[in-house]
Amino acid sequence: MNKTIIPLLVAGAGLIAGCEPQSGDTGAASSAAPIENIVKKEDAVASVNGKYISKAQLENLEKEIAARAHGASFPKEKLVEELIQRELLVQDALQKQLDKSPEYLAQLEDAKKSILTQTELKNFFKTNPVTDAEVKAEYDSKVVAETGTEYKARHILVKTEDEAKKIIAELDKGGDFAKLANKYSIDAKESQNGGDLGWFVSDQMVKPFSDAVAKLEKGKYTSAPVQTQFGWHVILREDSRAQTPPPLEAVKEQLTPYLQRQKFQKMIETMRQQAKVEILVPLTEEKPKTEAPAAPPAATAEPAAEQKPATEGAAAKEAAPATAEKAPAEAAPAHAEPAPAEAAKPAAEPAKEETKPAESAPAPEKK
């Protein structure tokens, strides 16, 4: 059997497998009263110098591997060997009284604070759950209320303004938009379906194009060509409608953690305001002071007529700092809480059917 410790798990948090107290966890027990006979033989997977390694430790190690290696797994014999070698290291460290070293005690204190922080976070979410009413209110204010307008349009794309003007002239004489699109448009896809772009929202099109569509009345086409980076467009607005928001259930899983973080953030801010906090270190770096260069020694051999006191005075003035040293700007208080990063606001619009023009002329299509 390969006795090598699994490389993925040797360092860092991998050494803290199984948080519950047990006889095999002698590192945690050494600083307090000895814990004996917590793990029974029938509940153990191995014994090292009389110390049992529990089945729970093995389960925790399997979960640790799955989280770290994205679902990868190792044979059970290697996992058990990993736990045995960890226990050997722990026992040797205790024999050397490394658990009393300043380095160990400092890291232990940091680990305690980290675990307490996570425990507080979980406890807050458990005791302050997001209600269905809160989710519904957020849905109404952030999703439904911000729903925009969808447009249905056709376009004809050509290379020059003159070509676009000729097409508009044909339309003015009663020409059929779809037939003219099939005949003239250089947008390969839309030239085969009468220039139909389907339904879209404004931000799916380049700005000049979407602005032109929004200004048109239903059933009207542009009286002047519209230029974009792709060429010149003649646009027909066929219809418009209020955008349909996604159903509540479709976005509930996004809204719930977002609201949880909002609640936690408010709690942290309240605690911060009520706490007496004193910051004892500078939070900005002072710029090093620039000293004026020393004046050059007087040139004793230089003739008096060639000396230029006025110029030297100007040079000295130039060399001096232009402005007085400024005090560093007062920094905003450091954020003391371990609050998770603010979640992005859930998208207000459902995914749209893509009706992109062909790659040969991607101009008006959806971004």
Rank of each mutant, 00 (worst) to 15 (best):
F125N: 10
A32L: 11
A33G: 06
M205R: 15
T149L: 11
N49F: 08
R154N: 12
S185P: 00
I156E: 05
K142F: 05
A363R: 00
R261K: 12
Y221I: 06
P293E: 14
Q204Y: 06
K317G: 09
Q274A: 13
R154Y: 06
S30A: 15
Y52F: 13
L108Y: 05
R154H: 15
P34R: 12
R272K: 13
P309T: 04
L121E: 15
A341H: 05
I84C: 02
D239A: 15
A358F: 03
K112C: 05
K287W: 06
L248V: 07
F264L: 15
G231T: 02
T147Y: 00
E353M: 11
A164Y: 01
E109K: 00
T355E: 10
K159M: 12
T228V: 10
A348F: 10
A66K: 11
V251H: 01
Y104A: 10
I16N: 10
L94S: 04
E349L: 12
I65W: 01
V143S: 07
V158I: 06
A295C: 03
P328L: 07
A153G: 02
E190C: 09
A275F: 08
L248W: 08
A169C: 01
I16A: 13
A315L: 13
P297L: 12
K41A: 13
E249Q: 14
A224R: 11
A242K: 12
A242G: 04
L61N: 02
A181P: 00
R237Q: 14
C19P: 04
R237F: 09
K96E: 11
A72I: 02
T284K: 10
E286S: 14
V143K: 01
E306D: 15
E342C: 02
A66C: 07
K366M: 08
D187R: 05
H233R: 03
K345R: 12
I84G: 03
A348M: 12
K356W: 08
E306P: 00
E359H: 06
